[in-house]
Design a protein around this nucleic acid. Structure first.
Ligand SMILES: [Mn+2]
Ligand SMILES: [Mn+2]
Ligand SMILES: [Zn+2]
Ligand SMILES: [Zn+2]
Lengths: 150, 150
DNA sequence: TTCTAAATACAATAATGTTGCATTTGTATT
DNA sequence: AATACAAATGCAACATTATTGTATTTAGAA
């Protein structure tokens, strides 16, 4: 479920990362932490339409650099941003988890409950990181489909 | 390695999919089949700069629909296109393989030699398809790095 | 050769992302 | 509380990627 955090905690987060407490940043944090799915760039932009587009891009970039959020491209190539799990540090993400993209509601879920399988690549390839994508129906949408069936 | 095919074979391919044999289509096929990596949209466009951009997009779309090529987004969200392995059909891709994105040369490799691990998602999620991404050094670039080290 | 549906070319527009710079603001220091 | 300055925002301009509509051309069938 969505991690519940209040404004004080967001201010703390910014302070810990040596970032100034500003209204745009707090609003972005608040929005991202209020959901249990990633936030697409278009969504973010339409919700925060009073904040300059460039400011949003810069906020997302710095948050990513600081290890607060990570970027995921969904199956359509759209940029989505999700809050990082515990162990991400500045300029070093630790986000090897599955991303589930619902084909119906288009939401992207970070699935941390699944440990990545160990994989051996063909000779010559030196893998540094893995990401797993899955597409299909998320719990909400699969329920809706069930109802329609009956 | 790159699948070697001649122009007659490309013409056959188009015919089998009920597509007219046109110069732009044959050139796109020829380019994609000549490489063992996916072709990025920008690359395609700069190489075929005499063909209209829109035409290229439409060729890529129809090829994808027909199951001739599949689209892969690399780690930067750039669209790449790769020739499909045997068993893709019209409007039904069968491309559950690993995509390896080299961090140095940026090339995207389709790794068919690896069978996808079976995964169980958390309750409620109904997965329809999986894609696995890996990033790191491809054989060529990892060799270059070796040489530099010495 | 003629005919037509399909494909391409061209024009316009939308969506996404970046860069440079002027202005504003958070915060450390006095 | 006032000052000072780096950091952040806002704005303008631009680049890239992608889509839509329509006129023109062309592959392939008749
Ligand atoms: Mn994630
Ligand atoms: Mn592939
Ligand atoms: Zn859903
Ligand atoms: Zn490489």
């Amino acid at each position: 479920m969505a991690q519940v955090k209040n404004n004080y905690q967001f201010e703390d987060m910014l302070q810990k990362h040596n970032l100034k407490k500003t209204a745009p940043r707090l609003r972005v944090l608040s929005m991202m932490y209020s959901k249990n799915t990633a936030t697409s760039q278009p969504d973010l932009e339409s919700v925060m339409n009073d904040i300059d587009r460039v400011t949003l891009y810069r906020i997302l970039n710095t948050f990513e650099e600081k290890g607060i959020i990570h970027k995921v491209f969904d199956l359509n190539g759209t940029a989505n941003y999700a809050v990082c799990h515990s162990d991400c540090r500045e300029n070093h993400h630790q986000d090897e988890h599955l991303h589930f993209n619902c084909t119906l509601c288009k939401n992207v879920y970070c699935i941390n409950e699944l440990n990545m399988p160990k994989l051996t690549l063909p000779a010559g390839f030196e893998a540094q990181g893995f990401t797993l994508y899955a597409s299909g129906l998320c719990p909400k949408c699969s329920k809706k489909e069930q109802v329609k069936m009956n």
